[in-house]
């Protein structure tokens, strides 16, 4: 082409470019707005929670109404016991089912189980609470730590099942084939070679899931119930940190609000600490292949 004219951008071009800049800037604003609540929540938790954190906070049981001081030691112990029970009941099933999904990949049975697992992940936690009430609490005749553990296990199972499946599927085929070629049986190949290779990934998933169930309140309201005193027997009601936060937050007492903030700070520190650790330090060696 011999003739080429360079014209100034027309008003239409200019409008198009301005629209582009403005709209893309809006997405930046959207990003800011979504991160803002996180910053605000952490800020308020730190400000209101840190003052109530002292030695008593970790070792004492709640003080009676009107008396200052007291702590949530029973809730910390209770949550540890409940999460432990949830892990004991839930992890074997979840890891077994995850292995099943990975081994039977592509079959109709696996697709059906995977679908139901995903749907189960969406069951409201309060529904799991009333189910465990109708099943365990009614048949035992009273609220108990055991029932709370069952409820948390049911929350745990779909999460860990899917992570286990994904992590096992990330293990290279060659490893599995190598095991089989050496004459290992199927089960020894899986349990001795594939599972250890996927271990760190599964561990990450388990940690994140445990941190998540540690913060669950709704499934515990009618199962573990809560307990204002020390409790460690499995067939008795037991205190739990999230339930205490709920009860204190809706109470009219200033002193209890302070405990609720501090307990929330502790819970958040636990959950975020685990998420950060899981993300930074434990990585599946096969991720991203």
């Amino acid at each position: 082409m011999n003739t080429q004219t360079v014209t100034a951008p027309s008003w239409r071009d200019r409008r198009r470019r301005t629209t582009s800049t403005v709209m893309l800037a809006m997405t930046g604003v959207a990003a800011l707005l979504t991160v803002l609540p996180l910053v605000l929540i952490l800020w308020h938790l730190l400000r209101a929670g840190i003052t109530a954190m002292n030695g008593d906070f970790f070792t004492e049981i709640p003080a009676p109404v009107g008396e200052p001081g007291g702590g949530v030691g029973n809730g910390i112990l209770g949550t540890a016991i409940l999460v432990g029970l949830g892990a004991v009941f839930g992890l074997p099933v979840a890891i077994g089912a995850g292995l099943f999904l990975a081994e039977a990949e592509g079959s109709r049975a696996a697709n059906a189980v995977r679908f139901i697992t995903d749907v189960m992940n969406g069951i409201p936690s309060i529904v799991i609470g009333i189910f465990v009430w109708a099943w365990v609490v009614v048949s035992m005749g009273h609220f108990s730590a055991l029932a709370g553990g069952v409820a948390l296990a049911i929350m745990l199972i779909p999460m860990v099942t899917r992570t286990t499946e994904e992590m096992v599927r990330l293990v290279p085929r060659e490893l599995r084939d190598g095991g089989l070629a050496l004459g290992f049986t199927r089960w020894r190949t899986t349990l001795g070679i594939v599972l250890p290779a996927a271990r760190s990934g599964i561990l990450t998933g388990v940690l994140v899931a445990l941190a998540r169930i540690a913060g669950e309140t709704a499934p515990l309201l009618f199962t573990a119930l809560g307990n204002p005193f020390w409790g460690w027997k499995l067939d008795e009601p037991i205190a739990a940190l999230p339930v205490q936060i709920f009860q204190y937050a809706i109470s009219p007492y200033e002193e209890w609000h302070r405990l609720a903030w501090a307990a929330s700070l502790l819970l958040i520190a636990l959950v975020l600490g685990v998420s950060l650790t899981a993300r930074l330090f434990i990585r599946s060696p096969y991720k991203g292949r």
Partner: peptide
């Protein structure tokens, strides 16, 4: 970091959102 921040938002327990909701 922004993506990580939103992931953390998903990890905050419901009851903590409630507490922040009531008082803030």
């Amino acid at each position: 970091p922004v993506a990580f921040g939103t992931e953390l938002l998903a990890a905050i327990p419901s009851v903590v959102y409630g507490l922040w909701g009531i008082f803030v």
